Amino acid sequence: MPRKGGSSISIKSKWTKTKWLLADRTLRRFVPETKRFTRSSLHAMIGRYKTVYFKPTTGTGGSGIARIVRLSARKYQVKKDTRTTTISSASSLYRQLTRIARGRSYLLQKGIYLKAARGRPFDLRMMVQKDGSKWVPTVMFVKLGKKNKIVTNYHQGGKLAKVEPTLRRSGYSSAQVTRYKQKLKMLGMQTARCFDRHSTRFKELGLDVALDRKGRLWILEVNTRPGFSALKSLADKRFYRTVVRYGRKYGRTK
């Protein structure tokens, strides 16, 4: 259930937040198929998709995530951190994932093939924050993944960058970049309205949005207490200052 973080509440369960998005008519088409981890849901997901992500229901910073790739009808590869294991049956795969989970609740999510800029896969972060009772799209930036990492998080060796130059480097025109930025703001504001229907005590949301190789946007996750100290790593300090300026209004300064 919601827990307090400053005067803004936070929801730890990724499953709860995913269900909220799926119940929203506008947002559900932006959510990759996600299921709770069970033996039957694993069989369904690995049968349907070549790549599936295995994510803890609670957790931050990209820790505990594994990637499953179907190599052939009965052969799978599991990568967690820098360790890769090849497994030769679905039942062995289930046992391996159960060992990784160690009794904790996990989710399975359809894998999205991320767009890359100069060989580095990336996803996008869209932040919306409250100014009084009104939501405002405050900052958006890119998380560039480190080579050979399965997540793009800053704390997993990722690097932050600006949206415009990254999208231009990955082959988009100025007009296309402008459209993507408008779409990201729309997703941020629609998600804020969706979360407001469950509680008006949310004051900040950080959407992790994937851009796939076909140019489609996907909401991978919504953070109800998004970290922003990594914004200090950007040469342009306006991003960090903007987030802090809005955060102060509801009692969050770091």
Rank of each mutant, 00 (worst) to 15 (best):
M1F: 10
P2R: 07
K4M: 15
S7T: 15
I9W: 08
T16W: 07
T26E: 15
L27E: 07
R28W: 11
P32I: 06
R48H: 13
T51W: 09
P56A: 07
G62H: 01
G64V: 09
I68P: 02
L71A: 04
S72H: 07
S72D: 14
Y76R: 00
Q77L: 13
Q77W: 05
K80C: 12
T82W: 08
R83M: 11
I87Y: 03
S88Q: 11
S91I: 11
S92Q: 14
L97H: 02
R102Q: 14
R102T: 07
A117G: 09
A117K: 04
S133K: 13
W135K: 03
V136G: 03
M140T: 05
M140A: 09
M140R: 11
V142S: 01
K143Y: 04
L144S: 01
K146W: 07
N148K: 15
I150D: 02
V151L: 08
T152L: 02
T152G: 05
N153M: 05
Q156E: 14
G157P: 08
G157L: 07
L160W: 07
V163H: 01
E164T: 14
E164F: 02
E164Q: 10
L167N: 03
K181S: 08
K183P: 00
L184F: 04
M189W: 06
M189L: 15
R201G: 03
D208K: 03
V209C: 04
A210W: 00
R213S: 09
T224M: 10
F228V: 08
S229P: 01
L231R: 02
F239L: 12
R241Q: 15
T242F: 06
G247K: 02
K249V: 10
K249H: 11
Y250M: 09
Y250L: 08
T253A: 12
